[in-house]
């Protein structure tokens, strides 16, 4: 039983790290398409790791199947809304964001 718990803790922590990275990307990336990219990575991989981690704790069969269904639904909805946002951004054309870009470039240089 203890191995199942270790498995859960490791994978959920890894998932949380992906969410944190996604949040940092959302805050710091220079343009909207990159921010969208960071967000969808966090959603798909982060949630995927959390779900796989929780599978070790879920009851068979309904708990496990519900978790997997939840993951698939989030991937479907996240993918579709990501495409829609990207399509809207593409249609609106490139927007210069000089102040944010300057900030991000300076921070990226400074924090690494």
């Amino acid at each position: 039983m203890i191995w199942a718990d270790v498995f859960t803790v490791v994978l959920v922590t890894a998932g949380a790290l992906f969410f944190f990275a996604g949040w940092v990307g959302l805050m710091r990336f220079p343009d909207s398409l990159s921010r969208l990219h960071a967000l969808s990575k966090a959603d798909n991989l982060g949630l995927g790791l959390v779900v796989v981690g929780l599978l070790a704790q879920a009851s068979w069969p309904y708990g496990v199947l519900k978790l997997i269904a939840l993951w698939l639904l989030v991937i479907l909805v996240g993918g579709a809304t990501g495409q829609m946002l990207a399509g809207a951004l593409h249609a609106a054309g490139p927007t210069p964001e000089p102040d944010r870009r300057g900030d991000a470039a300076r921070d990226a240089g400074g924090t690494r």
């Binding site: 639904l73 479907l76 909805v77 993918g79 579709a80 809304t81 495409q83 829609m84 399509g87 809207a88």
Partner: peptide, 15 residues
Amino acid sequence: PDPALVLLARLLPPV
């Protein structure tokens, strides 16, 4: 409507 929205509107309502 966005093609992604149309796909979503076909897949999600049954669920």
